[in-house]
Design a protein around this nucleic acid. Structure first.
Length: 1180
RNA sequence: UGGCCUGUAGCUCAAUGGUAAGAGCCGUUGCCUUAUACGCAACAGGUUAACAGUUCGAAUCUGUUCGGGCCAACCA
């Protein structure tokens, strides 16, 4: 022991999280001993390492020591600190951290500037809730100034918690000098970017159709629309309206077919109140339409209508086709109909029709007064039309639908909305902002389009419109229709889509370039980039930048009242110059508060106070909009450095990023805005590689939410299991981009726990801990400190060369996987190595080498080999498991000083060109044949153990021999080299090989499908059947000749040995087991000789247990008295020397009997069902 | 509603289109251990969500359906 004090818990069920630990200073002067541990207590180790990191500035140094090296650029996506960190933050930050640590170890310089996202709706809504106010109260009950001050205070409310989790989880990021989006410098860069866009003509104001709540009198953000419960099933009056076609050149073919009688286009709507605003009809280019002669089901007159062929069945019964019109009973049922002609939608594009509901307010003059040259009332073609519902012809009202607006613009249908004298757009819509019809719409003027006021006497205007249409021969079908419709989350009233002003970035102008540049980005997983993101880019619309809120980045555009002149401000300096100039030109009190020091805060309400002056000498006020917070975060590559006002060089070095990572939910958020701004302003990608990780779900696959109470607290998890076990679990359990079902159990009366993390802790960290502990124990006994010269690998024993070969293979794979951003695969490979190869084969088989014999060549080989494995594993796992790896690494390095480094995070990753470790540097220790034959040895051992189990013979009982048939060339040589290992492991005296040409074994033959399949194709089945019919003689012939002619359908097929798999099936008269091409047969006869040796080994085992239970030191010599009789006595006597050597006994004395209580330390033992007493005492 | 992802043992995950679909966890039974947290062996557990297709051969490729997730939402 080296002075470590670890107090074990007093309670009977130890929980490592609560062990109180007091540890001495870490690197006590050149200690000669490896620190021996008293338990795997990850949280305690981590606390110790964390303390050391902060004292030694280990993180800062890890960057400083790479000064001058090639940079690896990483961008931190800013979290919002107004909420608590969750377990999903831990996974994405682990991902970021491990890549950055890996790249650092690979020799790059990796700066990690932290940041905070501080604007946005969630913060405002949080403050509103806290103050008990709504948006309408801002500026009334509370001033904008106070409100924004509250927001500013709220944004970093949980910063302490975030800092805490950052530290505890071991996320290395620079939080001393983070970028903060609400700071003036940050906003100034945003303004600069916006002004660049403005100069390029990519920033413009336009109308957009947005969700609007007439009841609340406000537009709604998509965020608000996505609140749970906003979409409700409601019943509305729907109408199929008939639009009377105009007979002209385009429509002539229809009129010809209709005998020049009047004909109608039929269109369905669930919102009849939009019909007065109708400006067009939209059809699908490739949809088939028919002209039908039928009757009006309400007025019973004969009519001609056009609709989609696929939807005929919705309105007509097939048996009434071509039925007698005279037989129609004027009851609206069994409408007779006849198809007169048929055409594609593209054929009726451009047809004109008469306005359905003409009034004064929606007259053509009115429309053209607002939108000159508009050509409304036409049939258009667009891809959004389907034949799922309605008639296949879509009523199009550009004011009240985004699709309608888009297609209307494309065809210049016109618009009821124009810019009025105040530069506002809302006055002339046929429905006002309260949700009622404007004047000039006849009997409908002044009526609410929906019941927004909870008026019990409300009469549905949709019904009245429908009735009017029925009477005028303009309705074909009117009915109640149930559908899913969005509602305002605040008032519960239906929303409507309404034209509102907004500022846009014309991303569509560079769509092709964005698509092109996206193809150069390495997406993990690829499908997110090609599918989700790629499709999103293909279907991109202009970026709506406007937000009508208070706490955010103001849009820096000032405009004169008449809208004639405007400026876009690109810097604080420019604004301050404008402030002074306006004051001079306009005089009076203009900007008087800002003249002295200039503007101090770029937020509302201050920016809104400022009046600028236009070139024409008119006052200009700022437009009221704030910008989308996504612009804030998308601009971080520039704004984090206050580019271009400062840090031009730094920026140049750190753009674009080599790597970013966030959750897949950011695809259309941060990933998009980063890409868009970089493409728009710099014609570049913003990042070269992006990893989008999946969500963390609860164990039932549900999203974690506070509402469901299924969130996993990352603090609890990390405190209980340690960050390393948590990180390792998160990374290795599933690929980062798959959703992770977090294993979590909440038993009734026990603390909650995670079986998944516990397994990782036990299996991986437990094994590694044990391996280190084993090494430290014996290395301390022997004083191994890697002082001897490095023994060339070629001169070491087979098993050492094997584990070093395996290690090199793992190093190679880990590098490849890490380079490919596949940490899950890297972790799994390392995990397998530690568990299966290092611990359960190498150490297991080599144990004796560490405690037997003198300190000479073989022992030093063993120590050097095991040391190198441990050291290399620490370096391999350092990115994922930063604490424990550093802990073990330092414990090792403190004795050997092989690395001149205070932390594993300062050394190079194994396999890096300049690696210090000779054995793995160039992977030249890799010996595939060696790894292959060791696999054979492991398989053979496992087979023999299973045979022993079958006949119930313990491993301690030696057996005489196994028989192994060898097939093919080289197998015998391979096996012979590992024969001794197998014999020792399974306690067998000899191995006998059966050569291939023996006639003793029954063999089985099977086609090698991989080799034969491609060559034979369809003949495969016949060959397969042919081989199944092979006799033992056929197989022997093939083996002897090396080939075989098997005719199939008259044609010869030459089979080579490599075309088939031959395995031994059975050896008559032996216990046999097999796996693949390996078969073993075991001789289970126990001769008296073997039995005696078995007894001796049994006895050794019992005494060793006594030594351990009694608490003797490993090196204590002992004296043993045993009361053995007859056969047992003979066995023990025969192997006396062997026994004494094994148990470090100086004397082994046989006595007739040891009565209970006759002396100290009497122990009863049991050897092969014989009971006897022994006395084991320490000598001296 | 659309786009993308996903569905393999009770649970978590594997399986270059190649023929008994494998591990680990959980349960039961033995065993090994001078490494108290490892493991070994055995038992148990599967119509690879369903259906159809392509192929000599499909968990894997294609289509349809169903379930789960994310994102985007306006479907007339």
């Amino acid at each position: 022991m080296t002075g470590v004090l670890l107090f074990q818990p007093v309670c009977c069920q130890p929980s490592f999280a609560y062990i109180i630990v007091t540890l001495p200073p870490f690197r006590t002067a050149m200690s000669a001993k490896y620190r021996e541990l008293t338990g795997l207590n990850l949280p305690a180790f981590e606390a110790e390492i964390a303390k050391q990191w902060s004292e030694n500035h280990t993180f800062e140094k890890s960057i400083a020591i790479r000064e001058g090296a090639k940079p690896f650029v990483f961008y931190e996506g800013p979290p919002s600190a107004n909420g608590m960190p969750g377990i999903h933050h831990v996974i994405s930050r682990t991902l970021k951290d491990l890549v950055c640590r890996y790249k650092t170890m690979k020799g790059f310089k990796v700066n990690r500037k932290g940041g905070w996202d501080t604007h946005g709706l969630p913060i405002e809504l949080g403050v509103e809730k806290e103050l008990g106010i709504t948006k309408e109260d801002i500026g009334k009950k509370i001033s904008v100034e106070e409100y924004n001050q509250k927001c500013r205070e709220a944004v970093l409310r949980y910063k302490d918690k975030w800092d805490d989790i950052t530290k505890k989880m071991g996320y290395w990021v620079d939080l001393n000098d983070p970028y903060i989006t609400f700071k003036n410098e940050y906003i100034e860069t945003l303004w600069w970017l916006l002004s660049e866009l403005y100069k390029k003509g990519l920033l413009y104001e336009s109308v957009s159709i947005q969700p609007y709540s007439p009841a609340a009198g406000t537009g709604l953000s998509s965020h608000e629309l996505n609140q749970p419960g906003t979409y409700k099933d409601v019943k509305d009056t729907s109408a199929v309206a008939m639009f009377r076609a105009v007979n002209n050149e385009k429509s002539k073919f229809l009129f010809d077919a209709a005998n020049n009688e009047e004909l109608f286009f039929m269109a369905w709507t669930t919102t009849p109140w939009t019909l007065p605003s109708n400006l067009g009809l939209t059809v699908g280019a490739n949809i088939d339409y028919v002209l039908v002669k039928t009757v009006n089901p309400y007025l019973h007159n004969t009519i001609h209508v056009v609709l989609a062929k696929a939807l005929l069945g919705k309105y007509f019964k097939a048996e009434n086709e071509n039925s007698d019109f005279a037989a129609y009973k004027n009851d609206g049922k069994n409408l007779p109909y006849a198809i007169l002609t048929e055409c594609k939608g593209s054929a009726i594009e451009g047809c004109e029709y008469e306005q359905l509901l003409p009034f004064q307010a929606n007259s053509l003059e009115s429309i053209q007064g607002l939108t000159p040259d508009a050509k409304p009332f036409r049939v258009m073609v667009d891809s959004f039309v389907t034949t799922e519902d309605g008639t296949g012809i879509v009523h199009t009202a550009p004011d009240f639908g985004a699709d309608d607006f888009k297609v209307g613009q494309k065809y210049n249908l016109g618009f009821f909305t124009g810019i009025n004298e105040y530069g506002k757009l809302d006055k002339l819509v046929l429905v006002d902002r309260e949700g009622k019809f404007v004047d000039g719409l006849g009997e409908f003027s002044g009526r609410y389009v929906k019941n927004y006021k909870d008026d019990p006497n409300y009469i549905d205007v949709n019904v009245d419109i429908s009735v009017k249409l029925k009477k005028e021969n303009r309705a074909f079908k009117v009915e109640k229709y149930e559908h899913n419709y969005p509602h305002c989350w605040r008032t519960d009233k239906p929303i409507l889509y309404y034209p509102l002003d907004a500022w846009f970035i014309k991303t569509t102008a560079i769509k092709d370039r964005m698509v092109e540049l996206n193809k150069t980005i390495n997406w993990k997983p690829q499908s997110t980039g090609e599918g989700r993101f790629g499709n999103w880019l293909e279907n991109m619309v202009d970026w709506n930048l406007s937000r009508s809120r208070y706490w955010g980045t103001p849009l820096p555009i000032w405009r004169t009242e008449d809208g004639e002149e405007e400026v876009c401000i690109g810097s604080i300096e420019e604004l301050n110059a404008g402030i002074r100039k306006a004051s001079e030109v306009l005089g009076g009190d203009v900007n008087k508060h800002y003249l002295h020091e200039g503007i101090l805060d770029l937020h509302k309400p201050y920016v809104d106070d400022i009046i600028l002056v236009s070139p024409g000498g008119k006052p200009m006020k700022r437009v009221p909009d704030l910008i989308d917070v996504w612009f804030d975060s998308g601009a971080m590559p520039y704004a984090q450095w206050h580019f271009p006002f400062e840090n031009k060089e730094t920026f140049k070095e750190s753009f674009p990023a080599d790597f970013i990572a966030e959750g897949v939910d950011q695809t259309r958020g941060w990933f998009y805005t980063l890409h868009a701004i970089a493409c728009l302003v710099f014609d570049s990608v913003a990042y070269k590689t992006v990893v989008s990780n999946g969500l963390v779900l609860d164990k039932n696959g549900n999203k974690m939410s506070k509402r469901l109470g299924n969130v996993v607290d990352p603090f609890y998890t990390i405190n209980k299991y340690g960050a390393d076990a948590t990180r390792w679990y998160l990374i290795t359990n599933a690929s980062p981009w798959d959703n992770l079902k977090f294993s979590w159990e909440k038993p009734e009366d026990k603390p909650e726990y995670s079986p998944g993390i516990e397994e990782v802790q036990r299996k991986f960290f437990g094994t590694l801990y044990n391996t280190y502990q084993f090494f430290a124990l014996y290395a301390n006994v022997d004083g191994f400190a890697f002082k001897e010269a490095y023994i060339p690998v070629a001169q070491r024993p087979e098993i050492d060369r094997w584990i070093l070969s395996s290690l090199s293979t793992v190093v190679k794979k880990a590098n490849a996987f890490m380079d490919d951003y596949e940490p899950t695969q890297a972790g799994r490979v390392i995990e397998d190595f530690v568990d299966e190869h290092l611990s359960n084969w190498y150490v297991r088989l080599c144990r004796r080498r560490f405690w037997k014999g003198d300190y000479e060549q073989d022992k030093i080989c063993a120590y050097q080999t095991l040391y190198e494995c441990l050291e290399t594993v620490c370096r391999l796992i350092a990115p994922v498991s930063p604490f424990f790896s550093d802990f073990i690494f330092q414990n090792l390095n403190a004795v050997t000083n092989r690395f001149d480094a205070v932390s594993v995070h300062h050394v190079h990753y194994p396999g890096t060109a300049s690696a210090e470790s000779p054995a793995v540097a160039g992977y030249d220790a890799i010996d595939e044949a060696l790894e292959e034959r060791m696999q054979l040895a492991q398989d053979a051992s496992s087979l023999i153990l299973s045979l022993r189990k079958k006949v119930n013979i313990k491993v301690r009982q030696p057996l005489q021999k196994v028989l192994i048939p060898v097939l093919g060339s080289g197998m015998k040589e391979q096996l012979q080299k590992v024969e001794d290992l197998v014999k020792a492991e399974v306690n067998i005296k000899e191995v006998e090989y059966l050569e291939a040409d023996n006639t003793f074994i029954r063999k089985k033959i099977k086609p090698n499908f991989v080799a034969l399949g491609k060559r034979l194709g369809a003949k495969m089945k016949a060959v397969s059947a042919g081989l199944a019919a092979f006799t033992q003689e056929d197989i022997a012939l093939l083996e002897k000749e090396g080939q075989y002619n098997l005719p199939v359908e008259g044609e010869p097929v030459i089979l080579q040995l490599s075309d088939v798999d031959i395995t031994s099936e059975d050896i008559p008269g032996w216990m046999v087991a097999g796996k693949g091409s390996l078969t073993v047969a075991l001789d289970v006869t126990i001769t008296p000789e073997l039995e005696a040796e078995g007894n001796a080994r049994e006895f050794v085992n019992r005494v060793q247990k006594i030594r351990k239970d009694t608490g003797f030191e490993l090196t204590d010599r002992i004296e043993v008295k045993v009361a053995a009789t007859d056969g047992l006595k003979a066995s023990l006597a025969q192997y006396k020397d062997y026994i004494c050597a094994e148990i470090l006994a100086d004397t082994l004395e046989f006595v007739p009997e040891i009565p209970q209580g006759s002396a100290e330390g009497i122990q009863g033992i049991d050897i092969n069902d014989v009971s006897l007493n022994v006395i084991v005492s320490k000598k001296g």
